[in-house]
Amino acid sequence: MPNFDKEYLHEQFLRGQLTTEEQSAFDKVLASDPAFAREVKAGELAVEGLKSFHLHQRIQELRKKGQAQQLPDQESPKEENKKVRLISIFRKPLALAASFALVVVASYFIYLSISSQSLYGRYNQHPSFSVTEMSSSQVYDLSRAEAAFKQGNYDITLSELSSYLSENPTDTLALLFQGICQLELDDYTQAREIFSQIKSGTSDFQSLGEWYLALSFVKEKDFDRARQELENISTNSEKYTQAQQLLNFLN
């Protein structure tokens, strides 16, 4: 039996691509090396986590899309009663040209919409909503806000946060989450006001303020402004690598 590299076997196992021969070599290593077996178990969990994380994000993305489009519960019955007049466009060159132009324009806007949405969706990995860090006061229980934020219920998070923020208007982290919720709800003006305020401050979250300000333009498809903001993110920022990556996509 060939002598397989342990790491190679581990990788093949995680991708579900072990051959029969590799599988038997892998089983032997697992049986003889408990530390490796432990690492393989952690690797398995990591892949399981990545798969469920990916599904979770896709569902959230779809849900947001559904809310934005006001999806109907079921197909409208009125749909069936609509009468459609078919016009032979080949007999009408003008109609043909107009239809073609319409298709091109519509495709362009659909492309813009899909690309910016997926681009934003790729980068809107929000920080964990940390209640313990935020609620220094005993009076406020932000667990509902936390749960709502986790589930993508940004309007509920906003309302839960508002009373806390009225008492703690200088809590920058809470402000940041308020801005994120507003961004998710497409309230760009309010969101940008907050991100700009955080960006120009001296808190630990300054770089997140810069980053989210740029993301707000990505989401609104204002790619020129997004580029400008991303280019201003300095190499010291924790978001520098992502900003460069996003710039590459935009360029």
Binding site: R15, A46, G49, F53, H54, Q125, Q242
Partner: peptide, 24 residues
Amino acid sequence: HEWLWDKIRMLNQKCVDLLTLFYV
């Protein structure tokens, strides 16, 4: 899963993208 997602969120975004493309 939430326990695992907390770990995944500790990685930088490029790592998450890379691992997702490779393993998922």
